[in-house]
């Protein structure tokens, strides 16, 4: 299944039309805001899934890439007065570069070592944002980041912009995963890396590339975040954010294409459902993370899939593998 599943064309057209009329259906600006935030979470979770789901490496510092994208984009517009449409790709490329910077030294590390190294990187980035006052304005954060004035002015216009970016990014990730390169992501996982090397795959190159792609899309999310909310501070890109992104991927379904999307939406709306008990929110996240990996290691989408597979005699092709 190299291309998009055209046999489900009508489903896709229906979903697309539904997404296009969302601003007509959702009048409440707050709910529209949450939908926009879901879009950013989807980018964050889908990019983390490339590393943790497909490459099989636990990344506990994903918020660092998100932060690099956000701060780079904000500073480029505020200090150099570059337009948003230029800073978005530039900041994302900078995030991708930081991904390569992290990937190279960590590649020799395995399993928990790798996870702890990424935890360390995340902390270093947060500490730099926190302490480099002259550049980042320290713990106070950056206020009054200019929005993309001129062509995006309202939440509705933001909705369409974010929708477009998320759709294009997911499409790009989908195409990547079903390309020759994407299949090598599976091949260089820990348990089969020796075999992969034997058939001529340069595992270092593949892993660094995967990291750069993941960091790029996290950077896109960061840049969107900075200009959409117009305020960023180091606290937004802390270890807590990294763990929330991880929870989206794990609870949604590690290594499946749609699982993290599902998880991202779930974790953006969950706080709303729990608003009356908001102080229990993080307690609930922790419980979900533990419960999911202990009782449902394949996540919600993996669980649903196995149920469907059990019911269908023909079986359903797994999206991401093919």
């Amino acid at each position: 299944m190299k291309t998009l599943p055209y046999r489900n064309l009508w489903k896709w057209v229906g979903t697309g039309l539904l997404l296009l009329i969302v601003p007509v259906l959702v009048r409440d600006p707050y709910y529209l805001h949450l939908i926009n935030m879901s879009g950013l979470s989807i980018l964050l979770a889908a990019s983390l899934n490339l590393i943790t789901g497909f490459l099989g490496e636990l990344n506990l510092g994903h918020a660092a890439f998100y932060g690099v994208g956000a701060y780079a984009s904000a500073l480029l517009t505020m200090r150099l007065h570059l337009p948003f449409l230029l800073t978005l790709p530039v900041a994302s490329l900078l995030a991708a570069f930081s991904g390569a910077l992290i990937a190279y030294p960590c590649l020799r590390l395995k399993g928990p070592y790798f996870a702890i190294a990424t935890f360390g990187y995340g902390e270093i980035v947060r500490l730099i944002l926190h302490n480099w006052d002259t550049l980042t304005n320290g713990p106070l954060g950056l206020r009054g980041i200019p929005g993309p004035a001129g062509f995006i002015n309202s939440k509705v216009e933001y909705y369409y912009f974010i929708l477009t970016i998320v759709a294009l990014s997911l499409l790009a990730i989908w195409r990547l995963l079903h390309s020759q390169l994407g299949r090598t992501f599976w091949a260089v996982r820990q348990d089969s890396v020796v075999l992969a090397e034997m058939i001529g795959i340069n595992s270092t190159r593949v892993k660094v590339l995967a990291f750069m792609v993941a960091a790029y899309f996290a950077g896109v999310a960061g840049s969107l975040y900075a200009h959409y909310l117009r305020f960023i501070s180091p606290d937004t890109f802390s270890f807590l954010e990294s763990s929330t992104a991880l929870a989206m991927v794990i609870v949604g379904g590690l290594g499946t294409f749609w699982g993290p999307v599902l998880g991202a939406i779930l974790f953006t709306w969950l706080p709303e459902l729990l608003r009356s008990v908001s102080e229990y929110r993080m307690i609930f996240y922790g419980l979900l993370l533990w419960g999911s990996i202990t009782f449902l290691p394949q996540g919600i989408s993996g669980f649903l899939e196995s149920r469907i597979r059990k019911n269908c005699t023909t079986g359903v092709a797994r999206d991401a593998h093919s």
Partner: peptide, 23 residues
């Protein structure tokens, strides 16, 4: 199981415990 499962499970426990303690 995969050693990373223990990392994730204990990470969840950590978040749970310190937020419960905060409460």
């Amino acid at each position: 199981k995969d050693p990373l499962n223990a990392v994730i499970a204990s990470l969840g426990a950590s978040i749970f415990i310190w937020n419960a303690a905060l409460l």
